[in-house]
Design a protein around this nucleic acid. Structure first.
Lengths: 201, 201
DNA sequence: TGGTCCTGACTGAACGGTCAGTCAGCGACG
DNA sequence: CGTCGCTGACTGACCGTTCAGTCAGGACCA
């Protein structure tokens, strides 16, 4: 088995272990077992547990990059709404909720680990950049009003992130529902240019 | 020293230890040292580490209850705005940021510990109840429009929580700034009744 | 073709440290 | 004298990390 195949298996095993143990409960033994390999192998490929996890966040990032590259063709209103819907977790997606819970633990650990922190900041920039580019596209095409792109992207992300955080930590869809409806209201009132206005001014 | 004094000291030491170690790094020895007592004493008062932490969250809750009881006299617009400002962390309040980071870890642990989860849900109800009561008061007095109280409280909390989470995990005030400005905009447009409208309809 | 050398992926066992939890006992106070 | 608050020494389990060694296969040479 090549080094790269092994790397992919380890990343997958890390994901699985993170889902059913969380970050706090995550052990090298869990990951090794999940990959059907020995603990020592993990240290053969990554110096420390922290290194492995940094690699894992990198892996997530490139995954995310691939996924957003796919959806660039839709109109901006649709892209923005599907971004919001994608962010929120479906009630029956148990493993995704578990994963984001672990990710939340990981995000909190950034404060104690500079390498984590760096990766997390990179993923934040990617996320913000994505929303900003949707907004810019909408404004350029005349579909959106001329809002402050950076600030608008920031509050949208903060809002959906907060809703998801409360959704997964409190195990209720109450917050995501309220936030989704609210966002749609705000978008329709403040952001989307009505058809009958288009080209008007 | 009475049992209650010791309890308070332990809670304070837990707070301190949580601030500079985080939840993951928190040990019984840290707490004991901070309180100037022995580890065994902690087990004398609380059966397990988890029990101690449940006690700690209870302690936070009653603290929060006392604090909000103070501010009930201000007008609803002011109460709402000061709630938002209070939620957000000042850039130079390092220890408060550290504490909320630890609290974030603790919130994520709710998924693995039913007793934590219960306490956290209680604190969520308290928070939601507080915002809802501000909204209800505003609507009754005619200062606020007749919005859906539960849903509005939910999205406000999700928004400020998300902003604070990103603020403390990414160590940037970018999100909280954007969210504060946005919230003030939304409040003034959708929630607050203008003076010249008052009594009008 | 077959033998030698080397390397990269991988393992099992052990080590060292950490940490929650235990337990026997001690001083002080009512 | 009992019990309440408290301690220090200790234990068992766990977990990241290390290390000596195995094994398959590829390169190179005779």
């Amino acid at each position: 088995m090549t080094s790269e195949e092994t790397h992919d298996e380890i990343m997958q095993a890390t994901y699985d272990a993170l889902c059913d143990r969380g970050y706090v409960g995550l052990t090298m033994a869990d990951i090794a077992d999940g990959a059907g390999k020995s603990k020592s192998l993990l240290h053969y490929h990554y110096d420390t547990k922290a290194d492995l996890l940094v690699s894992f966040i990198e892996h997530l990032l490139s995954d995310f990059e691939e996924r957003i590259a796919v959806t660039v063709d839709a109109p901006p209103e649709e892209r923005l709404l599907s971004f919001v819907e994608w962010f929120v977790i479906d009630p029956d997606e148990d493993d995704r909720a578990a994963f984001h819970l672990a990710l939340l633990e990981l995000r909190a650990q950034g404060a104690f680990n500079e390498a984590f922190s760096e990766q997390l900041r990179a993923s934040d920039e990617l996320l913000r950049g994505t929303v900003e580019s949707i907004l810019r596209e909408g404004i350029e095409s005349g579909a959106f009003r001329d809002v402050d792109v950076e600030a608008t992207a920031a509050w949208i992300i903060a809002t959906v992130d907060g809703a998801r955080t409360r959704q997964i930590t409190l195990r209720t869809d109450w917050y995501t529902d309220a936030v989704c409806h609210h966002l749609i209201d705000v978008f329709e009132t403040w952001l989307f240019v009505e058809d009958n206005e288009r080209g008007g001014q």
